[in-house]
């Protein structure tokens, strides 16, 4: 057999999940190291949540091997459940209960001794700054507060690994930033492995390693910096009077692929934009209306590999029902 690395807290080998013949997860293999922040980045429906659900014992796999902390997901479910904390994509708090009561029920389910439960509840509430609202019904919480409470609850039984499935979905940008601050703070104060998914590229940059996942397959796996380094240099976006002509010209002088971008623009990569742009403007066969250059992001990495933007996927009927529910339950 393959050599077993004791530093790997999660090992996934050739995992396949089929739903009625449809391959949601298509033969993926990866490992998550102890104490790292590992991220799954990909569009909706890429198979992120399905994979997480299999690892955390909510779904059965079609084939493949999955272990967590040395336990087999198919055979040692309760052992795995004891050592993971979950923050689900969809709200899973009871909003007719107070924060303390939600934690109390969690404590009961995880068999935390009553004497320790109170102290731990205070500790996790303090960590996410909800101490002053601990006796309010969750109904009265804002979306961001609910998320924070869910993170606190996920930590209550001192899990070895915390799963965060789209932890900022449905939140406004400010609140999103705050949630990430809490996650970074958490990482600094505890020895814990964090496994998160997101379809916001910027957000996954806090990860130590990222797996980019699309259509059930892992198409890249590395540190954020290394991933971005796979892109040749800078990204240039241009609006011109004649894109077709300009495209040919750029292909000719740079030798790189030119893609159509949003709003009738075209985009491509060059090694060094600061010397390229003046040259282009001087020699361009067509009139350039606007031009911009920037450093590559993870979105460019995704675009580079798949030819699509991460967030352009259309929501299915089921997704839009989910979104409606989420809005109802979050706000």
């Amino acid at each position: 057999m393959n050599d077993i690395n004791t530093n790997n807290i999660i090992e996934v080998k050739n995992l396949v999940k089929e739903f009625k013949g449809l391959r949601a997860v298509d033969d993926i293999t990866f490992t998550v190291k102890e104490d790292e922040i590992f991220g799954f980045l990909g569009p909706n429906g890429a198979g992120k949540t399905t994979t997480i659900n299999i690892i955390c014992t909510l779904l059965s796999k079609t084939s493949g091997e999955v272990t967590l902390g040395g336990y087999n997901v198919a055979r040692e479910r309760n052992k795995i459940r004891n050592c993971i904390g979950m923050v689900f994509q969809d709200p899973s708090l009871d909003d007719r209960l107070t924060a303390l009561e939600n934690l109390y029920f969690h404590g009961l389910l995880y068999n935390i001794p009553r004497s320790a439960l109170k102290e731990r509840s205070e500790e996790v509430l303090e960590m996410v700054n909800l101490t002053s609202r601990k006796k309010s019904l969750v109904m009265t919480y804002s979306g961001g507060m609910k998320r924070r409470l869910e993170i606190a609850r996920g930590l209550l039984h001192y899990p070895k690994i915390l799963f965060l499935d789209e932890p900022t979905l449905g939140l406004d940008p400010q609140t999103r930033n705050k949630i990430w601050d809490y996650i970074i703070k958490l990482k600094k104060s505890k020895n814990i492995t964090i496994f998160l998914t997101s379809h916001y590229m910027e957000e996954t940059e806090i990860c130590d390693r990222i797996a980019i996942i699309d259509k059930g397959k892992i198409i890249a796996l590395d540190t954020p910096d290394n991933l971005k380094r796979t892109i040749g240099g800078d990204i240039i976006t241009i609006l011109s009077e004649d894109n077709v002509k300009l495209k040919d010209y750029i292909k000719e002088i740079t030798g790189s692929e030119v893609h159509d971008a949003k709003e009738g623009k075209i985009r491509f990569e060059v090694k060094d934009s600061s010397s390229f742009i003046p040259k282009l403007i001087k020699n361009s066969p067509v009139k350039i209306l606007s031009i911009s250059a920037r450093k590559p992001t993870l979105n460019d990495v995704f675009l580079d590999i798949t030819g699509r933007e991460i967030r352009e996927e259309n929501a299915s009927a089921r997704d839009s029902l989910r979104m409606r529910m989420r809005r109802r339950m979050r706000h």
Binding site: C56, L58, R81, N82, F88, S92, N111
Partner: peptide, 14 residues
Amino acid sequence: REFGFLREVLVAPI
């Protein structure tokens, strides 16, 4: 099960 508290219970060790 789909949207609520039950998911939290389903992933608990019971």
